[in-house]
Simulated scan of single mutants.
Amino acid sequence: MKSIYLACALGLGAVTLAGCDQKPAEEEVAAAPLTASEGKLFLPAVSGNPGAVYFKLENPGDRAISVRKADVEGAGSAELHDYMEYDDTEMGSIGVVTVQPGETVSFEPGGKHVMAFDLSPDLKPESVTSVTLTMAGGKTMSFDVDVLPADAER
């Protein structure tokens, strides 16, 4: 009788250990259902100053999506910015940009944009880099932007 219990215990132990060998499925964060177009990074006229990223962001979905963070490949950091009116017009960091269903939000000169700080000297005019937006909830999307000199037409 002991041998039956021993065999069962060994069998269950082997099944348990076999399950430990399997790696858990990696959670994949799905891309946000937004589309970006017309992406451009304008390099600063003075080395060491930040660059500005402009693009159009469209929400073809049926619910609002909030962008809470931007990252630019080749930049030490990046921030979502907008022009705000106080005593005079000033530019400042904003926390979130919400894109309503069916809406297109333009990131453009004199309005919303992404400021890219501490730019790598490897970013040269006529090259391409990548912007990654992070949404509330953790979904991300990446898209390419053309790198242009400061004096290019905006």
Results as ranks from 00 to 15, higher is better:
A116K: 03
G74E: 06
V128L: 08
A70C: 12
L80N: 06
L10N: 05
G102R: 13
D87P: 00
T16L: 15
E28G: 06
K56W: 01
K124V: 15
A116R: 02
A30P: 02
I94R: 08
T98W: 09
Y5G: 04
E79Y: 13
V114C: 03
V29H: 09
A14H: 03
S106V: 09
G92W: 04
L43P: 13
Q100C: 03
A116E: 01
C8W: 13
S77N: 06
D118K: 07
R63W: 01
D71L: 13
N59L: 05
V46W: 00
F117E: 08
E73W: 06
P24I: 07
P44F: 03
E103Y: 11
G11H: 01
G51I: 12
K56N: 14
E108S: 08
S66Q: 04
R63V: 07
F42E: 03
G61A: 14
L43H: 08
A64E: 15
E27C: 01
G110N: 14
Y5D: 09
T132A: 04
V72I: 11
M115C: 08
Y54A: 05
A9N: 03
D88W: 12
F55M: 10
G48H: 06
A9Q: 01
T35N: 10
A45N: 10
V29L: 14
V114W: 02
G48Q: 10
P24S: 12
G39H: 09
S93Y: 02
T89Q: 00
V105Q: 09
N49R: 12
E27P: 09
T104F: 12
D82G: 10
G74T: 08
P109K: 12
D118E: 15
L10Y: 04
T89A: 03
G19T: 01
V67R: 09
K40N: 03
Y5F: 07
C8F: 14
T98Y: 11
S37P: 00
K40H: 10
P109H: 10
A78G: 07
E79Q: 11
P50L: 14
P109Q: 10
V114A: 01
K112D: 03
G19H: 01
A75T: 11
G102M: 09
G111W: 08
G95C: 01
I4C: 04
D118T: 00
L57C: 06
A30K: 13
T132C: 06
M115D: 00
F117I: 09
L57D: 02
L80H: 09
C20S: 04
P125N: 10
P109E: 12
M84Y: 08
F55R: 12
V15Y: 05
P44H: 08
K124A: 12
D62H: 06
V131D: 07
L17Y: 08
S37V: 02
L123C: 00
T16N: 04
L119I: 10
A7D: 00
S66L: 04
N49Q: 14
I4V: 15
L57R: 10
V131H: 03
Y5C: 07
L133D: 12
L6G: 00
L10I: 15
V67A: 14
K23T: 14
R68F: 07
G102C: 13
